[in-house]
């Protein structure tokens, strides 16, 4: 089955930059996790996202396009990235989710992918 792992991270964590020496451990932990999960051959696709501050949200009401600066909801933890994995069961997905660095500082949401692909 395919699951989406959504990495919800504390907002401050998502502002970390690659070249900040104080963030070296942070990036190392993600690098290690991603290498392991990709090496396991279960990842279908995945992306890291730019920080929530770079988000833009669109609504369409009464024939008008409304554009808002920022993510659709400002919450304590926000989506930092995701992977789609193919594993036999939810338990396997939860095991992989628990190992994610986001589970230690924020949380990782596991959602089954709908049978119908978006296309």
């Amino acid at each position: 089955m395919q699951y989406m792992l959504l990495f919800h991270q504390p907002a401050t964590e998502l502002e970390r930059t690659l070249d900040d020496p104080a963030s070296a451990d942070y990036w190392e932990s993600w690098y290690a996790y991603m290498s392991t999960i990709y090496d396991a051959g279960i990842v279908t696709s995945g992306h890291g996202l730019q920080p929530p501050a770079t988000a833009t949200t669109v609504r369409f009401r009464n024939g008008q396009r409304e554009v808002f600066a920022g993510p659709f909801a400002e919450t304590q933890e926000m989506l930092g990235g995701y992977v789609i994995i193919e594993v036999p069961s939810l338990d396997d997905a939860l095991t992989w989710a628990a190992r994610s660095p986001s589970s230690s500082t924020g949380s990782t949401e596991v959602r089954p992918v709908a049978l119908l692909e978006a296309a």
Partner: peptide, 10 residues
Amino acid sequence: VRAKAKIRAA
């Protein structure tokens, strides 16, 4: 700084 970062990143 945040606004300028968004101009670039977004």
